[in-house]
């Protein structure tokens, strides 16, 4: 859980317990999903996840170490898109299976409506994983209402597709 001596020299190691507990509560992701990895904090805003046998240099100072995992110092930590795609398969709660039109909206960073029957795995307002054809696309923010809910696409700009040329619905 601690990582190699080189990793400890190079970067701040983070106690993963509170983060794993949060991911289990919100998404039902078992902490064992992350066996073999270590959480580290090379900068201020983000916790990264890296393979436990990783041996980075202390100098030059690492900019990033592994994959962005969570953005912290928010009301609720936000799972990164990269981590959602990597580990989303293990989620059992607050997952929305979307259709092609909804997936297209999500990937072009537009909000979309979710129908009540799509929210059976959801526990309420907050972050959800958006899944299409069994693949986790990323993280959305669900605001439930009487007719289902509105899902805001939390896809970063750098991941977004251009709505003029990207389509999952064109025949």
């Amino acid at each position: 859980m601690k990582g190699t001596p080189e990793l400890q020299q190079a970067v701040k190691i983070v106690d993963p317990a509170p983060y794993f507990r949060y991911l289990e509560e919100r998404f039902g992701i078992p902490p064992s999903t992350f066996d073999g990895y270590v959480l580290v904090q090379p900068g201020r805003k983000k916790v990264y996840i890296v393979t436990a046998d990783h041996r980075p240099p202390a100098r030059p100072r690492p900019r990033t170490v592994g994959l962005p995992f969570l953005r912290i110092y928010l009301k609720f930590p936000k799972l990164s898109t990269a981590a959602a795609q990597q580990f989303g398969h293990a989620a059992t709660r607050n997952v929305i299976d979307v259709d092609a039109a909804q997936a297209e909206a999500f990937l072009t960073r537009r909000d979309f409506r979710a129908r009540p029957e799509q929210l059976t795995l959801c526990t309420g307002r907050g972050y959800v994983l958006v899944r299409y054809q069994g693949h986790t696309l990323g993280v959305g923010f669900l605001i439930p209402d009487e007719e289902g809910g509105c899902v805001e696409s939390m896809l970063p700009k750098s991941w977004a597709r251009d709505p003029d040329s990207f389509s999952l619905t064109a025949s």
């Binding site: 190079a10 990895y37 990783h54 240099p57 990033t64 592994g66 898109t81 990269a82």
Partner: peptide, 11 residues
């Protein structure tokens, strides 16, 4: 990030 690489440090 897109390829899900867990063994890379950048400097």
């Amino acid at each position: 990030e897109r390829l899900g690489l867990l063994n890379v440090t950048t400097t």
